[in-house]
Measured scan of single mutants.
Amino acid sequence: MDVFMKGLSKAKEGVVAAAEKTKQGVAEAAGKTKEGVLYVGSKTKEGVVHGVATVAEKTKEQVTNVGGAVVTGVTAVAQKTVEGAGSIAAATGFVKKDQLGKNEEGAPQEGILEDMPVDPDNEAYEMPSEEGYQDYEPEA
């Protein structure tokens, strides 16, 4: 019985440690998101679009440190934060509304985080759909 109880105690310690790591990862992701939003706020009209992409990228980098179902929630929060940063930029006159959601080359930025393969159960990952990809044929 002692062996059984000791095993359960060790398992509990492992769960607590994993929860603490997840909590730490979420806190880091939130900190990076805040950094990115402050970065966007300090940019001029020309830099705002690039700044919004930076927020998304920093958040995406930190999301990889967070495991399990938390990833889905962090990704949703990050996307809403990026959308909010863009709205703030438009409201303050840093950028025109028609410039939001495009990178410096004018290509749409939507789907940055949505296409990231995420499995809350950590069982399997699927690649994003290939609808947006084109076949590449090298020139002879």
Rank of each mutant, 00 (worst) to 15 (best):
V3M: 11
V3A: 02
F4P: 00
M5R: 12
M5V: 08
K6T: 04
G7H: 04
G7S: 09
G7N: 08
L8S: 00
L8T: 00
K10I: 14
A11D: 00
A11N: 00
K12I: 03
E13P: 00
E13Y: 06
G14A: 15
A19L: 15
A19V: 14
E20L: 09
G25N: 03
V26N: 00
A27I: 15
A27E: 02
A27S: 12
E28H: 05
E28P: 01
G31L: 11
G31R: 14
K32A: 07
T33R: 01
T33N: 00
E35S: 06
E35A: 04
G36V: 14
Y39V: 14
V40W: 01
G41E: 01
G41S: 12
G41F: 11
S42T: 04
S42C: 07
K43S: 04
K45I: 09
K45R: 07
E46C: 06
V48E: 00
V49W: 09
H50Y: 15
G51H: 15
G51A: 06
G51W: 15
G51N: 10
V52W: 09
A53M: 03
T54M: 14
T54C: 13
T54S: 10
A56F: 12
A56I: 13
A56S: 13
K58E: 01
K58V: 13
T59Y: 15
T59I: 06
T59K: 01
E61M: 08
E61F: 03
Q62R: 08
Q62L: 10
V63Q: 01
T64I: 13
V66G: 04
V66W: 14
V66M: 14
G68F: 14
G68C: 07
G68Y: 00
V70F: 06
T75R: 06
V77L: 10
V77I: 14
A78F: 13
K80L: 12
T81K: 02
V82K: 12
V82R: 07
G84N: 12
G84S: 08
G84K: 11
A85H: 02
I88E: 03
I88R: 05
I88C: 04
G93W: 13
K96W: 12
D98M: 06
G101R: 10
G101V: 08
K102D: 05
K102Q: 03
N103P: 12
E104Q: 11
E105G: 05
G106F: 12
G106Q: 06
P108W: 08
Q109T: 06
I112M: 06
L113T: 07
L113Q: 07
E114S: 13
M116G: 04
V118N: 10
D119E: 08
D121G: 10
N122E: 07
E123W: 10
A124N: 01
Y125G: 11
M127W: 06
M127S: 04
M127Q: 12
E130Q: 12
G132D: 05
G132F: 12
Y133T: 13
D135P: 03
D135R: 07
D135T: 12
Y136M: 08
P138T: 07
P138V: 06
E139S: 08
A140I: 10
